[in-house]
Design a protein around this nucleic acid. Structure first.
Lengths: 187, 187
DNA sequence: AGTTTCTTTTGACATCCGTCAAAAACCAAA
DNA sequence: TTTGGTTTTTGACGGATGTCAAAAGAAACT
């Protein structure tokens, strides 16, 4: 739910006027590695654009941290459910590297969408894409072995493996870190 | 993706005028048990409303049939992706009982949505609800044992267990029929 | 009732994967 | 380079679940 806007709304696909409008109402912030962007229980009032660095979204389940998405350069990220509903967030967003972010408040975003219809279209498309991905991950989780899931990640998203610690990736794949380590050794 | 409209657009929640408009442009069909409503590869041009009976959506994976949703009385059902895009369906829809269905063509539906805005709202809400459910099932698939998934189904959707063969339910839960049988014996 | 067919259960076994614990490798800072 | 912390690997073990095969039970048909 969280990174609806990520993975699709590539900054460079936007028209020049839309880009200018965005740049006019966002502010830059710099964060250190391991900083928390959003903590569980907080209300998330901003949408972020990740210019440099990477981060992850995770939640707690049975005392374990479950990383369920990663964000990288040029992704839009936020705690989507909290951002749209105003409810406290159920997830945490944490920087995995020192990062440069641009943020925009919910009010400013709504104004933007109003004035630049192309952005609204992007949001809707992002929505669909995000869920196609979720559906695929659901099938993978149920019907693929740990090794198959790892190999698929290796093919489709090698950048995740290069920049995220193994433990985060393991929970993302739904397996233990030890199993992932062994799977990796076999290949 | 398939049963976006199912699970939410309960017929009785609609206004009288909308209901009349629907009834004016749908046609009734009767199907026998095990009939195929949609077969993989076909384009699905109709949205169905299930008045009486029940059915399932399934696809093939590694030579096995995976049932991924069930439809019951008062559900709207279709092969959603095929219906909206016009692409051949990747899933099959099969009756589990002799059933009475109402069908509406895509063109007639679009006209309906145009003339009855409340229906459009229902579609959007159904969309969101469907994906929340998918997200929940994703978490269950990854982090719950077979027994926990079964018990949750028993609580939340006992009607499925009463009307669907065990083999269908097993693949729906992502476990083998034998395991489901044993889980059930233990409770 | 008897027969056939489909569905569910039971048994035996192998395998994948999680858990716990310890060792090894890697990294960063002094 | 040494030290301390973090990340990754390795080993041993047990449990959950899949697979294959057969038996038992239900339902449908004659």
């Amino acid at each position: 739910m969280q990174q609806l806007l990520a993975h699709l709304a590539n900054f460079h696909h936007l028209s020049a006027t839309a880009r200018e409008a965005i740049q006019a109402c966002v502010t830059e912030t710099v964060h250190a590695k391991n900083d928390m962007l959003i903590t569980q229980g907080q209300v998330c009032r901003y949408l972020y654009f990740l210019e440099k660095g990477c981060l992850r979204g995770y939640y707690h389940l049975d005392g374990k941290e479950i990383t369920h998405w990663f964000g990288f350069e040029q992704d839009f990220v936020t705690s989507f459910h909290s951002f749209t509903t105003g409810q406290p967030s159920v997830e945490n967003i944490q920087l995995m590297e020192g990062s440069v972010l641009w943020s925009i408040s919910r009010e400013a975003l709504l104004k933007l969408l109003d004035e630049h219809h192309e952005l609204e279209r992007l949001v809707r498309i992002a929505y669909e894409k995000y869920y196609l991905r979720l559906e695929e991950r659901y099938v993978n989780a149920q019907f693929k072995t740990a090794a198959e899931r790892y190999e698929q990640l290796l093919e489709q998203s090698p950048h995740i493996l290069e920049r995220a610690p193994l433990g985060y990736v393991a929970s993302y794949l739904g397996i233990s870190q030890e199993t992932l380590s062994r799977v990796r050794g076999r290949i």
